[in-house]
Amino acid sequence: MTPQDRIWLITLLGIALVALVFIYVIARSGGVPAAAGEVQTRAYAIRRWWFIALLVLGVGVTWATLRPFPVADQRQLLPGAQIVDVVAHQWFWELSRTQVNAGQPVEFRVTSADVNHGFAIYGPDDRIVVQTQAMPAFTNRLVHTFRRPGFYRVLCLEYCGLAHHGMANQFEVVATTGAKP
């Protein structure tokens, strides 16, 4: 299951839950009106519990998703990483190398020669693997270890003008010992 599949599933479940609550309340909105105070007292008592549940869930998800921190340290260089310098231009990508090894960390040093661009790496299955922004006068360090060999497409995900949608390049991830076939 890709990260996108997990996100999609959680979203659908969340929206379905909200929808079910609305459908339940709408279905029970008619008939003889109940006393407002009575309904409120009961509803607020229920609310206390799911509010606490949401808080606990939020803390748990925050902890789980921020450890390890998903953005590379921008000052601490990673020893032994394969370095790829990336310069974005209107409307092409300049990559210092077009082949990297699977199973070893790759450090992309991403900048722009003109406007803002989005450096997005699409895997062989055409799903985004990872991304960062390409900004003039700044260099974003992006560290990723590719597990799956194959051709990876680079697309621009920050609107950058007339040929934004055509701004593409690719690189190859080659198998090394220990990498998945």
Partner: peptide, 12 residues
Amino acid sequence: YGALTNVYRSGI
């Protein structure tokens, strides 16, 4: 939730 509480068994 306030809106739903407002609507629930209200005879809206």
